[in-house]
Design a protein around this nucleic acid. Structure first.
Lengths: 242, 242
DNA sequence: TTGACTTATATGTCTAGACATATAATCGTG
DNA sequence: CACGATTATATGTCTAGACATATAAGTCAA
């Protein structure tokens, strides 16, 4: 028999320290505001060097589980209910993850000079060209979401050469634009006649709306509105405690 | 003069290394998949020890900006659009932050033995007592949200002694229960007659729903449903890039 | 009491090494 | 060519120190 004696091969020491402290916080044994043992105390308790406990504490601080204050010590932070991690999966991934077949359909694609309302929606001042796209995503041939998108061509000139007939613009952008930042706004509306027709639902049915605004550095990339039938779609946000 | 040659007191070295790399990723100079210089190369470039560049790279890895692979190197990860930080503020804080006056009203509070549907909603198997609460939050005396909550008394026995007449249950729990985890589910519905009456909106108006399920370790704490008039409330989730 | 000054101390950062370990790449062999 | 064994190497973890620095706490004078 090899050397895996008991539980799994123990993780590294700093991870064990980190997990020990995390457990005491999670169970409430060390409530918010509680002062965690000083580094030199943990050094004594675990018989290791200060750098090792420092690494454990630094990671806990980066995860917002504790707060470190010079000369004072490290303290358990109070839970941040107001901050949760929202998973907004790529639509294709979301549908295939459910074991359903993904379908995509371009409704229209238009290249045009940015109108005033385009500029407002993209948050840019200068005139320029944009691509306006409407398309539909479906699962097992049932409409799943309708997408309404604007791409700023001055930020993504390559987009002019893509026709978006086979590949959804979201996936195309993901593969052609480097790292981006994004902001999502979630709201609820009732389906108007156009949405009702495209999604094959009743006029007045509740819909979940995600408006996603994406940019890189100071440059706007794209603004997109996704409309989901309210009874078939939910967003799940999980609080991240480490 | 010491060795701080140019600009202001530069941040610490590892932070500068981290920022340098981050910038190249953000601008797209190093696209997803690109191999970041090896630690020993960065050591040479910055003239520091390996621990210093290791700390910079470890933090970038913890922030999911890069991926580290033994023997292979460190690589820029592709943007994780599917993960965003959702701010779900405390309702009182949210309203007062808008400069409006906060109002709270208890509609009913009932202590009872858990019914089958209570147990299902809380995700517990054993019978026990619960508190069921309905209340309303308002801004400048206009209904803002209606709250429907279940508290598991076997997890939070002290809740039996709180009347929730002045203090909303969310805020009470925040101050009486240690660290918790939570899961939020967001969906859209139309107002039924009861919701329409409490929120003073039309029947059939769109509403945003947040279902929050909170627990600590294995113990369920509370399940709450918040219903917001769809035209007056939005959730904002910002992509966290580090 | 209050404000200015001093001191003690916990964290923040860094070094120049060390050994461990996973794995990409290479080499041999059937 | 296929596949197993070997090797090289980049990262992972750790040490025993060092000095820097912010700041809580104490000291002292106005």
């Amino acid at each position: 028999m090899s050397l895996a004696t008991d539980a799994a091969d123990k993780p590294t020491l700093y991870k064990r320290i980190r997990a020990d402290i995390e457990k005491r916080i999670l169970t409430g044994e060390w409530p918010p505001g509680h002062r965690i043992p000083f580094e030199h105390e943990l050094v004594a308790r675990y018989g290791c060097s200060r750098m090792t406990v420092n690494k454990a504490l630094s990671e806990l601080a980066q995860a917002d589980l504790i707060e470190r204050r010079r000369r004072a010590g490290s303290f358990v932070r109070r839970p941040q209910h107001q901050s949760a991690v929202l998973k907004i999966a790529d639509i294709r991934a979301e549908i295939t993850a459910l074991g359903r077949s993904y379908g995509y359909e371009l409704i229209h694609r238009k290249l045009r000079a940015a109108t005033a309302s385009d500029r407002e929606r993209l948050g840019v001042k200068k005139a320029g060209k944009v691509i306006a796209i409407a398309c539909r995503h479906s699962a097992d041939n049932v409409p799943f979401a309708v997408e309404d998108r604007l791409i700023d061509l001055s930020s993504v000139p390559e987009a002019a050469t893509a026709d978006f007939v086979r590949e959804p613009p979201g996936s195309w952008l993901l593969h052609h634009v480097p790292w981006t930042e994004a902001e999502h706004t979630i709201s609820a509306v009732v389906a108007d006649d156009r949405a009702a027709e495209v999604l094959d639902i009743a006029i007045g049915a509740p819909c979940l709306v995600i408006d996603r605004y994406t940019w890189r550095g100071p440059r706007t990339i794209t603004a997109v509105r996704l409309l989901y039938p309210g009874d078939s779609h939910r967003l799940v946000a999980r609080f991240k405690g480490g």
